[in-house]
Design a protein around this nucleic acid. Structure first.
Length: 819
RNA sequence: GCGAGAGUGGCGGAACUGGCAGACGCGCUGGAUUUAGGAUCCAGUGGGGAAACUCGUGGGGGUUCGAAUCCCCCCUCUCGCACCA
């Protein structure tokens, strides 16, 4: 019976060793280059770690271990994003305090992570719900408040009755709450808002500075949605005042044939003629009843109502009818548009539906068939003022926009304007389990709590239900009269505490900074530590955070940059999203399908190293890929082979190991393996690196005599992937210390190439033979050798070789006359 | 609908800058060893064919001595956005 790698004992032993020796503790050391390798810290849910988490954490762990061996001072921390709704909802249901469930869940997560052999520096563990931590979250909020970046506004919010709280736009998916999938309705409410729009340009432009997946940067760009255009004022016909619209195509101003207001537009009333009032009212009511979901269905037929009112086009004095229609949204631009049906598809559809005129002002399309919207082709036509003093005719869109915008400004009819899709960030939640906002209300004014008085601790309670009564939903904190009623620290006057709490995103906006200096009682992070460790060199986490967390964190980082807390404009230099791990059936893992793979069970059966290897061997890191238990078994078999390659049945170093130098062929195998594994690790190609380790073992195992000079470097190469077996082999091969800081093997370029190469010989592009030739064989010699080969001659058939293609050491292609 | 990415054996996936398609693993077939094995070892494994060969990287065209790789059209899947003026 072949002996096997006793993973269970070995794993326990080395985990205990690392813990006792603080092997992975990171200390500032300016003599070594730093590498900050960060995982998106998890919300510690009750379900424990899943294999998708493990894929993420294993990848960064392998890289951290690799970088340590390459001489980097590695910071690889872990913590808990522990405020949030699930623990609170559980508390509402069971009465168990969220702090209790959270602590239990964290214990499970931490145990599972240690068990997987993840090399975190646990001395830096942080928890967003710890007062020592959220004290600084509150401190940052005060900085935002001081700078006018946090304010209270009566804003239309997404109210979720089922959750009893408001939600940010980013927390709503297809009109339902991201958590729970409950209905969400729009309603105005007084709320705390962060002015992220003040940073819109920097958030957009600085995407150029980071090495992130193109798709993620694109998503952020779309979310910010910067559009450059002009606001234009159209004078009301027969009344004082003007209707202001926003357009990105002021060059099509001469093509406007009607106007459209959002149904909620404040001028809609004033513009409505008595005869139309009933129709307008009916339409507005119908719109109000529709959900955002229904309103935003672009495939729907256009609807709208004429108000009876008119405005005057400033470029040509034309009297344009004003309509209201729900395809114009109050929330974007000015809530009103000029309709240019010739050159906007939506306006075109509307004009067709209501028989409004369509006018061509950009040549090049066929506006009878469809709107001509391409801004990169075609020149302006029919675009001259009636008095002939101003014209953009003949200009392409770019110059035309420029010219007419300047003219509008000179005439006082409009101005260049930039609008964003990005809205300010709704920052308060009617919840218990979140950071209290460090604010008191004194006679209707919000006053900051002085920073020396932080943290504002979350008060104890056993009532977790929101006080969501009718029109005025309130946080559970509002019930705690003793806590709410306080005095203004500045004046001593009676004051009421703010009872809303921060959204879950708050704590994760800056946690990467606290890891640098987790116990600092005086500052969020000491300047010299920030200077040493920042920015994050590699940040890994799910693509689901492409917009939310990553945009919010970048925003806070830029504010912290402005107040001198951090020295880099961006926090995360390189970002990678691990792909989703599907169930064995190729479906998304879910409780209801019952295809969830439990990491504890899997590690019980196969050991942590086999699971780590399989997680990485499955396929490319960023791809979506299915789990396979057979695949894990394959990795177990590989580790067993590795074990037998180095260790005999009695547990001692194998008697096949010799002190003789490797043969030339063995040396080439070793150096090729070192190169392949090293280069693949740098490029995060873990799957192909492991394949090469397997090749090495497949070649070495059958040998009766195996030079230690081969086996020892191999153990070092394997160790980042499978650290427990790595340490154990290193130890049994006679080394006393951990291999965590052993220098990474180097390859000798002289040894990575074979001295004989296989040359592919083609005739007319088809492979006919392969020849073994010395490296560097020239064309003549290769051709001579090929022409001597029967397999080649057969296909040449005596014909004349018209052309020879030769790629040294690779390929020879003989082209003969048409056969 | 728009934007981004991807389609390679029975399966997961390899393939540098256009140069031997299918590395490595799983599964499968045959054999050895074993009381037995979901252990181990050996041999094989894209399709067709006895072989010589031939076909083959979603489909169709093209460029090239040569295409999984480059270009055009189409199909499918995944992700994101979804009337943003």
């Amino acid at each position: 019976m072949a002996h096997r790698y006793p993973f269970s004992d070995v794993e326990k032993r080395w985990q205990a060793y690392w813990e006792a020796h603080e092997t992975f503790r990171a200390r500032e050391d300016s003599s070594r280059p730093k590498f900050y390798c960060l995982d998106m810290f998890p919300y510690p849910s009750g379900a424990g770690l899943h294999v998708g988490h493990l894929e993420n954490y294993t990848a960064t762990d392998i890289l951290s271990r690799f970088k340590r061996m390459r001489g980097f001072n590695v910071l690889h921390p872990m913590g808990w994003d522990a405020f949030g709704l699930p623990a609170e909802q559980y508390a509402v249901k069971t009465g168990i305090h969220p702090a209790v469930t959270t602590a239990e869940n964290i214990a499970t997560f931490r145990r599972q992570m240690k068990r997987a052999g993840l090399s975190y520096d646990w001395s830096r563990e942080i928890n967003t719900t710890a007062p020592d931590y959220y004290r600084w979250t509150q401190w940052i909020f005060l900085k935002l408040f001081e700078r006018g970046l946090a304010y209270v506004a009566e804003v239309p919010v997404n109210w979720c009755p089922a959750l009893g709280t408001v939600l940010a736009n980013e927390e709503i998916i297809d009109g339902k709450s991201e958590i729970g999938g409950f209905d969400v309705v729009r309603r105005p409410m007084r709320q705390w808002v962060l002015k992220i729009t003040a940073y819109a340009d920097r958030l957009l432009d600085d995407l150029e500075l980071v090495d992130w997946p193109a798709s993620t940067r694109e998503m952020q760009r779309n979310w910010i949605g910067r559009s450059i255009g002009a606001e234009v004022d159209f004078a009301l016909d027969g009344a004082p005042g003007a209707l202001r619209i926003f357009t990105t195509r002021p060059d099509t101003l001469f093509g406007a044939t009607y106007m459209v207001l959002a149904p909620e537009h404040p001028l809609a009333d004033a513009l409505t003629a008595p005869a139309q009032r009933a129709a307008v009212e009916a339409y507005r009511e119908a719109t109000a009843r529709k959900s955002d979901m229904q309103r935003q269905d672009a495939t729907r037929e256009k609807t709208g109502v004429f108000t009876g009112g008119h405005v005057i086009n400033p470029v040509n004095g034309e009297r344009l009818p004003v309509w209201i229609a729900d395809y114009v949204l109050m929330g974007y631009g000015t809530g009103a548009i000029m309709a240019v049906p010739g050159h906007d598809q939506r306006d075109w559809e509307f004009a067709r539906a209501f028989d409004l005129p369509i006018r061509e002002v950009v040549a090049g399309g066929d506006i009878a068939r469809e709107a001509y919207v391409d801004p990169d082709r075609g020149v302006a036509v029919h675009s001259t003022t009636p008095d002939g003093r101003f014209s953009i005719d003949g200009l392409e869109a770019g110059p035309a926009i420029e010219k007419i915008t300047v003219w509008l400004e000179q005439q006082g009819h409009g101005r260049r304007t930039v609008h964003y899709k990005l809205r300010d960030w709704l920052f308060s939640r009617q919840r218990y389990w979140g950071e209290p906002l460090p604010i008191v209300w004194v006679e209707g004014d919000a006053r900051a709590i002085p920073e020396q008085m932080l943290p504002v601790r979350l008060p104890e309670t056993d009532q977790f239900k929101p006080m969501a009564t009718g029109e005025k939903p309130e946080s559970p904190l509002a019930r705690l009269t003793d806590w709410v009623e306080t005095t203004d620290p500045a004046t001593g006057r009676p004051a009421r505490r703010e009872t809303n709490t921060m959204p879950q995103w708050a704590g994760s906006c800056w946690y990467y900074l606290r890891f640098l200096d987790p116990a600092n009682p005086d500052q969020p992070v000491a300047a010299e530590k920030e200077r040493y460790w920042m920015p994050v060199d590699l940040y890994m986490g799910g693509a689901e955070h492409s917009v939310l967390h990553l945009l919010y964190a970048r925003f806070w980082h830029k504010v912290l940059f402005d107040i001198g807390v951090v020295h880099t404009p961006e926090p995360f230099m390189k970002l990678i999203h691990q792909g989703t791990v599907l169930g064995e059936d190729g479906q998304k893992m879910s409780k209801s399908v019952g295809n969830i793979v439990n990491p504890d069970d899997t590690m019980d059966r196969f050991g942590a190293d086999a699971v780590r290897l399989y997680e990485m061997f499955m396929g490319p890191l960023e791809a979506m890929k299915p789990w396979s238990t057979h695949g894990v078994e394959g990795c177990t078999r590989f580790l067993d082979r590795v074990w037998r390659m180095a260790i005999d049945e009695d547990g001692a170093a194998s008697r096949a190991l010799t002190s003789e130098p490797p043969t030339d062929g063995q040396a080439r195998l070793l150096h090729r393996t070192i190169r392949k594994v090293t280069e693949d690790l740098e490029a995060l190609r873990f799957n192909t690196a492991i394949a090469q380790l397997m090749v090495f073992v497949n070649e070495m195992t059958p040998l009766e005599r195996r030079p230690r000079a081969m086996i020892e470097p191999f153990v070092l190469l394997l160790a980042p992937f499978a650290p427990h077996i790595g340490e154990e082999l290193w130890n049994r091969l006679g080394h006393r210390d951990t291999l965590a800081y052993e220098p990474w093997p180097a390859w000798d370029p002289a040894w990575v190439e074979d001295e004989t190469v296989t040359l592919a010989v083609q005739v007319n592009g088809k492979l006919r033979a392969t020849l073994s030739l010395p490296r560097g064989t020239d064309q003549e010699a290769a051709r001579t050798a090929a022409m001597a080969d029967e397999r080649v001659l057969r296909h040449l058939d005596g014909a004349e070789v018209r052309k020879t293609i030769f790629v040294p050491d690779k390929l020879l292609n003989l082209v003969v006359a048409g056969r």
